[in-house]
Write a protein that binds this DNA or RNA. Structure first.
Length: 306
DNA sequence: CATTAACATATC
DNA sequence: GATATGTTA
């Protein structure tokens, strides 16, 4: 197995989780611009979760409710329960347990926060692959999956149709997604069996099923990233939200990194990322390839991952 | 007072 | 084990 492709790792992240919990409880909040806010006295309270409808109006986390209402006059506001004058998140913790229970049927999970969990799917993928008689995957089983880097421009979506081109101007996002999956399946099934690419695809299949089970049993929707390690899975998860999942093959990383700000990588969003950018005078992840491991280790210490 | 709370890791 | 620091949502 190629270096860096040993495992299949996924990160599942609930979409605006606190909002979904309140929407399940109060149907009047569903499919509307709404937020969850804590405390009431100062500027209407501070916002800790935002529905995607409200995001479309420019409402963000940690905005004051009074300010958000200016951007979105019909914004609905759910309040965090308060006990002893403090925000009480028990409600959301209990909903989190419901989700974790369903996910745990599919794999051993590592709870990363109240609304996200990592999982190593390597063993589950091997099992599943073994039990797939024709070892083929129907693209309709990857209904909500994006393959990062696909479709590749200048390639045809199918072997017997050499007239079609990948044309953004006439294709909507769903059509493009679907063509990308087809192209990926066509190109990753040739070559060695059970390749790293095929393992990611089987991982995506398992995560599709896991996410469907979570929605069926809890009513909550989520997004996911599937790749070879936790950092890439987390990055992938953010590429197509909400209610979608993204496979990030190692071969698509270089192109993605070429325009990706260093601050977008988990744990580099703060002082560490700023110090890298400052010290080396570079902006994007891809720029880091011009430095040797020794150079990077020199300035950014052994303890911090170099 | 005006995010705030949770979580992980480093340090004493 | 407590405390400080960093990071995230």
């Amino acid at each position: 197995m190629d270096y860096g492709k040993e495992r299949v790792v996924a990160l599942v992240d609930m979409d605006c989780f606190y909002v979904q919990v309140e929407q399940r409880l109060n149907p009047a909040l569903r499919n509307t611009p709404c937020v969850v806010a804590q405390y009431k006295t100062w500027k209407g309270g501070s916002i800790i979760a935002v529905s995607y409808e409200a995001r479309a109006h420019g409402v963000t986390r940690n905005m004051w409710v009074d300010d958000a209402k200016k951007l979105c006059p019909d914004l609905q506001v759910a309040r965090v329960r308060e006990s002893h004058g403090k925000a009480d998140l028990t409600h959301y913790r209990e909903a989190s347990v419901e989700v974790i229970e369903v996910m745990s049927r599919f794999a051993v999970i590592e709870r990363a926060s109240i609304d996200e969990a990592y999982m190593d799917l390597t063993a589950a993928v091997q099992q599943r692959w073994k039990n797939m008689p024709d070892q083929q995957i129907n693209p309709c089983l990857l209904r909500t999956t994006y393959i990062q880097g696909y479709p590749q421009s200048g390639q045809e979506p199918s072997a017997d149709d050499d007239s079609s081109q990948v044309d953004d101007s006439i294709m909507d996002k769903e059509q493009r997604r679907s063509i990308g999956v087809q192209q990926w399946l066509a190109s990753s099934s040739i070559g060695e069996q059970n390749s790293a690419e095929m393992q990611l695809t089987v991982g995506a299949l398992i995560v599709e099923e896991m996410r469907a089970a979570v929605e069926k049993h809890t009513g909550f929707r989520c997004s996911a990233g599937i790749s070879h390690n936790k950092v890439l899975a987390k990055l992938a998860c953010g590429l197509n939200k909400p209610n979608r999942q993204t496979v990030l093959p190692l071969d698509s990383v270089a192109e993605l990194f070429s325009t990706l700000p260093i601050s977008k990588i988990r744990n580099l969003g703060g002082k560490m990322g700023a110090s890298i950018t400052e010290t080396l005078g570079v902006a994007n992840m891809g720029d880091l390839t011009q430095f040797s491991q020794a150079q990077l280790g020199q300035h950014f210490g052994e303890k911090t991952g170099f």
